[in-house]
């Protein structure tokens, strides 16, 4: 256990626990775009910057991304200062120029008093803030189908060499984790399209409802040993089936009793 001061309040935390988690547990709202519990933190969105100092630092202080900074004994953390708010405002100003189509970014900008970006909006902006949440979640999944390709201004998230990713299984984890909601996908006529590829969706054998792709089911079968027939029918039909089976047993028991 370590003891720190957050916004003037003494708090306890486990050693090595990241500051952002400790701060949020205190009910303090620090914005973060690239942070997600299921992936390793990477500190790319810069929104969770906080000011840290120590008593023996003689007034020196520094700004760190709280999602990546482990808790230490004697740390003095401040989450909201005029300087920090200014930094966050500037970052959001840049994000607003890059993501004219993202509701979340525009709304966050408004919260920081930005009605419009002071930079030139990138007309061909892809609304991606390069937070790597999608690539990190794909890595956790064990596929690493997508990553950043090319360098500098031309950097985009894509399959290898900018082509459709051969290792993608169409699970949509990347699309759902994306903070700015830019990864396009569609489910149509039993086919899912994402990253320029199409995947067959498993249709329920009884009602035709679709839930996941065939490739994703295959991956689950192989990686987590889920029996193949578990994916044959949809959740609605499985519930009806369960009711029928359980009901049959109840009727049998009643007959035996009477």
């Amino acid at each position: 256990m370590v003891q720190m001061t957050i916004n003037g309040k003494v708090v306890k935390a486990t050693e090595g626990e990241m500051l952002l988690a400790v701060i949020r547990r205190q009910g303090i709202d620090v914005p973060a775009l690239c942070d997600h519990a299921a992936v390793e933190p990477c500190g790319s969105c810069r929104m969770c910057l906080v000011e840290i100092t120590r008593e023996d630092w003689n007034g020196w202080k520094k700004y760190v991304t709280s999602c990546l900074y482990p808790s230490e004994d004697g740390l003095i953390v401040t989450t909201h200062t005029p300087e920090l708010q200014e930094i966050r405002r500037n970052i959001l100003d840049l994000y607003m120029a890059r993501c004219p189509g993202s509701e979340l970014i525009q709304k966050m900008g408004e919260e920081y008093g930005l009605t419009r970006t002071s930079f030139k909006t990138i007309p061909e902006g892809d609304n991606c803030i390069m937070c790597y949440a999608c690539t990190r979640i794909c890595e956790v999944l064990g596929r690493s189908a997508i990553s950043a390709v090319r360098r500098g201004h031309a950097k985009v998230i894509s399959g290898p060499f900018g082509d459709p990713p051969p290792d993608c299984i169409g699970c949509l984890s990347c699309a759902h984790i994306c903070p700015t909601d830019v990864i396009e996908w569609h489910d149509q006529d039993g086919v899912r399209g994402i990253w320029g590829r199409t995947f067959d969706l498993i249709a329920c054998q009884q009602c035709g409802k679709t839930i996941i792709t065939r490739d994703f089911a295959e991956y689950l079968k192989e990686k987590r040993q889920i029996p193949a027939d578990y994916f044959d029918i949809c959740d609605d039909c499985k519930r009806v089936e369960l009711a029928r089976k359980m009901g049959g047993l109840v009727d049998q028991a009643k007959e035996v009793a009477s």
Binding site: H36, A37, A38, I137, C171, L172, S173, H176, I177, I202, I211, I212, F216, A217, L220, I226, Y230, F231, C234, D235, D236, C237, K238, R239, E241, L242
Partner: peptide, 23 residues
């Protein structure tokens, strides 16, 4: 279900043999 860790991939919905992980 830890909502913070869930990314809505629906593997559980498809895998539950009783259809009790819901959307």
């Amino acid at each position: 279900l830890d909502k913070d860790r869930c990314v809505n991939c629906r593997a559980c919905v498809a895998a539950c043999p009783f259809g009790c992980a819901l959307i």
